[in-house]
């Protein structure tokens, strides 16, 4: 067994334990922390696959930015303790059944088809700089320019939308105040 393969199994174990911990913990803060561990492990998977840029983006965006906001909201709302019983009692058994179906499906495919040829080793396929920032930037701004621009416009619209929504509320609450102030 090569080092990469053993690393893969170790990381896969950590990722699965973290995912299970996220689902099973009763405290929402613990769930969020397990999810962060999971994201970090996925980032290491990307590193193993020779994609450092995506690995770092994974840590910065998911583990760093998004999960901080999750934790922020959980802590601000005091929603860390799950007190009431689940409102969807049929959900857990259904999830178990569907999970078993998926596992069986995957097993059948593997048994009938086999795992297929192993993917070529990284050094053969990867040119120098593969997965690096320059290669990703070059393909983003040439081949995938249109999707990239469309995504940026979408994000801009979401940002403007968020600002407009919050400002609108503020404006409404301020109108009576300003009137009462001018009235005085």
């Amino acid at each position: 067994m090569t080092i990469e393969l053993s690393l893969f199994f170790l990381l896969a174990l950590i990722a699965m334990l973290a995912a299970g911990g996220m689902l099973l913990s009763r405290n929402a803060v613990y769930s969020a922390l397990f999810l962060i561990v999971n994201f970090a492990t996925v980032a290491v998977f990307f590193l193993l696959l020779g994609a450092p840029f995506i690995a770092m983006a994974q840590v910065t965006v998911y583990a760093g930015a998004i999960m901080v906001l999750f934790l922020f909201v959980i802590m601000l709302l005091g929603a860390e303790r799950l007190r009431q019983k689940s409102v969807l009692p049929w959900q857990a058994p259904l999830a178990v059944v569907l999970g078993i179906v998926l596992l069986v499906e995957a097993g059948v495919v593997i048994v009938t088809r086999g795992l297929g040829a192993p993917p070529p080793a990284l050094s053969e396929t990867a040119a120098a700089g593969f997965g690096g920032p320059q290669a990703i930037g070059a393909s983003l701004f040439t081949t995938y320019l249109l999707p990239f621009e469309v995504t940026s416009v979408l994000l801009l619209a979401a940002m403007v939308g968020a600002i407009v929504l919050t400002r609108d509320e503020k404006g409404k609450s301020q109108i009576p105040n300003s009137k009462s102030q001018t009235g005085k």
Partner: peptide, 9 residues
């Protein structure tokens, strides 16, 4: 080659 991203992350 992703040093700056490493620092940010």
């Amino acid at each position: 080659n992703v040093g700056i991203l490493y620092i940010l992350s």
